[in-house]
Every structure is written in structure tokens, then in C-alpha cells.
Design a protein around this nucleic acid. Sequence first.
DNA 1: TAAAATAAAGCTAAAAGAAAGGTTAGCGGA
DNA 2: TCCGCTAACCTTTCTTTTAGCTTTATTTTA
Lengths: 224, 224
Amino acid sequence: MRLLLAEDEAALSKALKAILERNNYSVDAVYDGQEALEYLKSDNYDGVILDIMMPKIDGITVLRTIREQGNLVPVLLLTAKSEVDDKVLGLDAGANDYLTKPFNSRELLARIRAMTRTQTAQADSMLRAGNVTLNLATYELSTASGSYRLANKEFQMMEMLMRNPGNLIATERFMEKIWGYDSEAEINVVWVYISYLRKKLNALGADVKINVKRNAGYMLVEPK
Amino acid sequence: MRLLLAEDEAALSKALKAILERNNYSVDAVYDGQEALEYLKSDNYDGVILDIMMPKIDGITVLRTIREQGNLVPVLLLTAKSEVDDKVLGLDAGANDYLTKPFNSRELLARIRAMTRTQTAQADSMLRAGNVTLNLATYELSTASGSYRLANKEFQMMEMLMRNPGNLIATERFMEKIWGYDSEAEINVVWVYISYLRKKLNALGADVKINVKRNAGYMLVEPK
DNA sequence: TAAAATAAAGCTAAAAGAAAGGTTAGCGGA
DNA sequence: TCCGCTAACCTTTCTTTTAGCTTTATTTTA
């Protein structure tokens, strides 16, 4: 399986390449958007890992360009924590998935596997659980009876829950993924947002629930 | 969960050990690569935190050596800021993850959790005795006729019993393992929790029983 | 030595206490 | 104005203690 890795930060690029190669991918690393476009023109890849912030040509433009050329190669976008709107842009531009830095290798590998599995590609920009959908581009949480546009943090929490239905997500995990390792925020922001989400799910007549497991975390449970 | 910490800088080592122990890891600290190798030979650890720059034998060599010996214990490498290439080397040598100094405790703990999860994760997430199962992930105690989600202490007691069916567990042993040596709790909390568990086992129609042996302890007995 | 008395050990419901989690108002910054 | 966050207060759940009761073991007494 051949992957193109476009990431300008040398240390991260090297590390990623090593991880990917240990997992039996052949990886070409490039360090700016222009190089990425050249490589994508000349070669056939099974997947692309594309940082958004890159010198010369940014990731979104690279993505848009290759899609215009009819290239349907699956693309995983890497975004820094704060570049939230970039995600939306990226999905609109035809990305298959995105990953927020910092991330761990297991997650990266899982996403790549998921992405390359169904070569069918084209952005699945909706998450679904029970009678609820979450639009990854517009941040809309909907059921038949209505919808809310979620704020950023709400969205990220809901996304994590919906990507792992039936699995427990540790409270610390929310903190790490959404607030970052160096955040000073109190642990109870998580409770606060869980509360917001439950309220909205309830108002929408959702048939999914967010369950708590004491001393552990939260889980999205779908109806049977 | 037992960890080996190999870090030559005394102050950092002490601090890390304290943090880890506060998070319920048992930590052995060693101060050079040679010691690390000795400890890794003689003992079983659930994870290793390995500084790269160490006296006598460096971390990468330690890592490479134990991997050659077929030891698959998860290893988290600690690298100083600039040693970028070391990361790559380290991952190639078979490290599971790495962390750049300086780092904060939340990140360290997250990495350790992630690293050790793989190994143990779905190994065996269920304990079984008679017609009863205990789900180690959800804390659910079940039979065909239903289930209870156990609270923390209840769960720990039940786990100890189910890991030693037919063996006597001293009341004092419960105290040591679950409440800790420095607990102020009275001995009769054990009786109280035994009582809770019996009630639930009974309500579930379990065919196992918790027997008492006077002046000794308790034993889970399975039907013949 | 059998029966009665006493002591020790263990059992359990309920109350008290502690901790975790939930909710809301409000403040400050884009 | 919307968003993110904190802080205060509320609710629920878990843990421990209390106290009275039952069972089992030991000692005493006839």
C-alpha cells in the first residue's frame, strides 16, 4: 500500500514515516504543497496524508486541485487544534477524513485503514447513530424533528462520541483530544458540555443516550 | 500495573516516580542502561519508560537488546528536545511511543495508558464462574437472567473472588489489596461488601456461592 | 458430658458521610 | 452576540459506619 505524506514539520514527518513503514506502508514524504501536487500528478497512491498548513501551497488548495483533476485518491487531512474552520473547508473540498493534532499512532493507522478500505472514497461527511445525524461540515446535529448548529467544543465532543458508539471514552481522553495536553481547563468543562449535548439530544427527541460510567468516562448508547 | 523507569537524572526520576505512583502504578526506578537491562531480565513489567541518554548503556541499545531477546514489553522513550533522529531510531528499534522533554504529566500518563492498553485490552475482558460472568470493562455482573453494574469496591472484591475460585482469600488480603495498607477503614467493610455481593448473586439466580471460613476469609465455590 | 450460658465472629439494613457528576448563571473575550 | 469557561450549588451514587441481629464456637455448670 503506497501513501504520500505531505507534512512540512521535519520531526513529525520523520516520525510518521517511521510509524507507517513499520506498518507495511510504502511512504513518500514531501515537505510542501507544491511537491505534493507534483508527486500526485506523476504517481498512483492508495492514500494521502495532507497537512493543511504547508509552505508554498496549502493543503486545502492541493486537495481542491487534485479533486478538480478528477483524482479520487483518499485524503486524510491533518489540522492543528485551532484550525477548526479548516476542517469544514477540507471536507467541502473533498477530504475523506481528518485528524486533529496531536494524535496518536494507533488512531492515525485506524483512520488510514478505514479510509483506504473502501476505495469508493468520496467524503462521508455525516455521522449517524440511532435517529441522529451529525453533519461534519456544518456542525449540525439533527433528527427528523429539527437540528442545532453545535458550537465548536460541543461538536468535537459529539464527534468523538459518535465515532465510537458503544465504546467508553475516558474523560481524560476528551481533555487530551479537545483541550490538549497543556490546557489549564478544569475537568468539569467536560461535564458541562456533556450536559449541553444531553439537553440538545433530549430536545431533538433523540433515541441515543450519553451514559456515564463513574470514575471512567462516557459512552454513546444506541437503542436496540 | 508495574512499570520500570530508567532515567539517570535523579530529580526527574523522583518526580516521575511520584506522579506515576499517585496514579496507581508500581514503579521500579533504575538509573542507567545496565541496571535497566538487569531488571528487565529478571522481572515482568507492564511497561518501560526509557530515557535515551543514559550512562553505561544508552536507551536505544537497551531497547534493541530486549527486542532481540524477544521481549515485547511496551516501551516509551524519553528524548531530549533536539534528538530528533533518535526518535526515528527509537521507533525503528521497536519503541511503542516516544515523548520529548520537557513534557507534562497528563501527556505522560496518556501515553502510558495508550501504550499498555494495546497489550492488555481485549486479552480477556470477562471472568466466568458457574453461570456468572463479570465484565471487566463495564463492571457488569451477569447471568442469563439479568445483570448489575457493580460499584468500584464491589467490583474489586468480586474480581478477586472470581480470579481465585475455590481458593480461600483472607479477609486481611481484601483489605490490603482493595483498601491499602494505610486505610483507616474498619474490617467490617469487607463483611458489608460480601453481603452486597451475595444479595446480588442471589437475585441473579447465580449458582456460585461465597462461603465464609471463620477466622480466615472467603471463598467462591462453584457448583459441582 | 450434655445442656446452658457466654463470647466471638459474621451479617445486614439503614443512616451518615464523601465523592462524582450535573446544571445553571454569569463573566470575559472574539 | 456567541462561545468557552468557571464557580457555585444541586443531585445522584458510592462508601463507610453504626447498631442490632444471627450463627458458630467456647466455656461453664449441673
